[in-house]
Write a protein that binds this DNA or RNA. Sequence first.
DNA 1: GGGCGGTTTTAGGAATACCTAAATATACCA
DNA 2: TGGTATATTTAGGTATTCCTAAAACCGCCC
Lengths: 225, 225
Amino acid sequence: MPLSEHTESVQDYLKSIFDIQREHGRVATTMLAERLGNSPASVTGMIKKLAALNLVEYEPYQGAVLTPAGEKIALEVIRHHRLIERYLAEALGVPWDQVHAEAEKWEHVLSEDLEDRIDAVLGYPTTDPHGAPIPGRDGTLPPPHTTRLCDLQSGQSATVAEVSDHDPAMLRYFAELGLRPGADVTVVAVAPFGGPLTVRLDNAEHAVGREVAGYVAVCNVTSGG
Amino acid sequence: MPLSEHTESVQDYLKSIFDIQREHGRVATTMLAERLGNSPASVTGMIKKLAALNLVEYEPYQGAVLTPAGEKIALEVIRHHRLIERYLAEALGVPWDQVHAEAEKWEHVLSEDLEDRIDAVLGYPTTDPHGAPIPGRDGTLPPPHTTRLCDLQSGQSATVAEVSDHDPAMLRYFAELGLRPGADVTVVAVAPFGGPLTVRLDNAEHAVGREVAGYVAVCNVTSGG
DNA sequence: GGGCGGTTTTAGGAATACCTAAATATACCA
DNA sequence: TGGTATATTTAGGTATTCCTAAAACCGCCC
């Protein structure tokens, strides 16, 4: 049962449902519609189709949840996507704000054989260029990061784990700051009333909006110095 | 006006029309239908659509011919296809009987930027793994080879220029014989009545069916020794 | 508990690209 | 020149996936 048994649409829906489910549990029609850029009416129709294929469980007005079969496919698509992103960045030098768009198209037509070759050439990587984990062939995926840059207190340091990849302009901004997975970041100050954070990266200080800092996951948090 | 302005179907039709036109001049509905695996009725419908887009000239019952605009797109698709084949074989070690199928899918979603990167990484190659020329960015393409292995007389030698890539089993057979682009081949004997040719490759002799030899283009023909 | 706003579904329809079966045109041969 | 085989087109229909507009539902507030 390779990916190609399902249309690109089905693959895209499952991938988005998986993402939303990770964050919100229940997948509401409107949220899925926004992420996919489709109308809610269209999404209702497709969800009903996915339910008929036993890829989601669906109760009208109650949202959808992936079945094990649906989750398996979602993870395969995500594995394709992130392996491709990594490959494009590493082997072909594609800038990290462009790998997402390219992978979005290629992921649907990648054969299992080529997937394996790419995996081997890269040395079996575990994350994509934005720090997101690459699911294993067996569908394993580590739990999501729980701490974000905006959660840090003044004086705390951490390692950047993952940045959001959905806005190329924001990725270029992160690159400019040196805010990439593996980088060490220290919060110098936190402005009150939801104001910006002052962070130190590569021995330079920058003011970063609170909301933007919410798009950066961190790990290895240490307090004080 | 990038490739992505047109559907995959349109791209596939134009590519096949270009191929047939090179061999036969006029593109008959049935021939196109066979190559694409569609019914003749479907092909008629699509040709009318291509004509409406000014990509082919079409007179009912008289077949179709590419317009300059159609030819430009066809060459872009073929460039994608052959560059990808070359890349898969060279950078990822995909066997030459599998690169065609993989390229067939990827060619439609390759961005211009990635095309350029692949071209550069490969050192601007001029042929794909089967010896077929890769069209230039400007749409230039050398004329097709005119001599085939089956055209050679007993005693003649030549260099293999290009092999047909449409049948993976035949490609595996060619690989087994050492019949690959650049290889030197000598015709030892030609059986009468359309019988097989005996050819020498890598100092081994093989009997090759006349029809199969028609799928191998050669150049640098020399007589006797 | 009725009403109201926002969410979700239903109804009806469009675009793409394919199919089969039937009708028609073409080309060739007697 | 008529007739037939073949090639091609037309007619009618299916599947997929999207849309808008209208109806139905849910939850919350008074």
